[in-house]
């Protein structure tokens, strides 16, 4: 990461990752993997296009790939609900993860969502239950799980695909418990203090790396991933290949245990 780039504020990075030109999950899948086949539906209610999933190949290794799906234009954004998933999206993702576990395929998740959708249908169909189940089941998966936060890591909606052995963030990605606007309006009763909140929340890749929440930061091309998508994908692929070489040598049970222990130690408190 260049020194100049390090100086970008959290708000500046939010602007970068919210740009229309920012690569989406399809850009990454098509350049990093071969033979991708999309698998749809949660086998219960429907197919939520806010989350895209399927199987593919990374070199010689068959993998399951799942990611939040942001649109490239207005129509796509309407179709994909701006990557804000309903419960059936998380249930589809979980179905594909259990399938991956059965066939000993590593799972690779791409996170880029403002958050899980807030609406009537989402509540009726158990948004809370769907995310809760994702967290618990992901934690115990006996197969390697790698998550890359590529843009917006919006709270529980992001975490629902991020209980992984290795979590990375792209250099400009953000990941937070609440949006800066939400934080400012709830805690300060003043939504205009959004920028101040963004800094305070410590939501940049560097912040999360320093707090030992993520394993690493994947560098972006100068001015952001959209400036050189090919190079961006190369950087991601290098990380994935290295990790898969390491993780595929570990037993399933041990992978689940390592993942649990990692999250077990998250939290800052004092002890008398």
């Amino acid at each position: 990461m260049s020194g100049e780039h390090n100086k970008i504020t959290a708000s500046g990075r939010i602007e970068i990752v919210k740009q229309k030109a920012r690569p989406n999950v399809v850009d990454y899948i098509s350049r990093i993997f071969d033979d991708f086949i999309e698998f749809r539906g949660d086998r219960a209610f429907g197919d939520d296009q806010a989350i895209l999933g399927g199987i593919a190949r990374l070199g010689d290794i068959p993998v399951t790939v799942i990611g939040h799906h942001k649109g490239k234009n207005t129509q796509e954004n309407i179709d994909f609900n701006f990557a804000m998933a309903h419960p059936e999206g998380y249930r589809k993702a979980l179905r594909l993860m259990k399938q991956a576990e059965k066939f000993h395929r590593p799972i690779i998740c791409f996170v880029d969502t403002p958050g899980a959708y807030c609406g009537i249908g989402a509540e009726e169909r158990g948004q809370g239950e769907a995310i809760a189940k994702s967290l618990q089941v992901m934690m115990a998966l006996e197969t390697p799980v790698i998550t890359i936060v590529t843009g917006e890591g919006g709270s529980g909606g992001a975490l629902g695909l991020a209980v992984a052995n290795k979590v990375y963030m792209l250099e400009n990605a953000v990941y937070s418990v609440i949006s800066p606007k939400g934080f400012a309006s709830i805690l300060w009763k003043d939504a205009t203090r959004e920028k101040e909140a963004a800094e305070l929340l410590k939501m940049t890749a560097q912040d999360l790396y320093d707090a030992h929440i993520i394993e690493g930061i994947i560098p972006e091309p100068e001015e952001g991933a959209h400036k050189d998508v090919k190079q961006m994908c190369k950087n991601i692929e290098a990380v994935l290949r290295q990790d898969l070489a390491e993780l595929t040598g570990i037993s399933g049970q041990e992978l689940a245990q390592l993942r649990y222990e990692k999250f077990r130690h998250m939290g800052v408190f004092l002890e008398r």
Partner: peptide, 26 residues
């Protein structure tokens, strides 16, 4: 919900407690 005052650490508690509940269930 999650305690915003503690930022991302609060979010991670969701995974942590769910995992511990999972071990108890297993």
């Amino acid at each position: 919900g999650a305690r915003m005052h503690e930022g991302i650490l609060s979010l991670m508690q969701m995974a942590k407690v769910s995992g511990a509940a999972g071990k108890h269930s297993q």
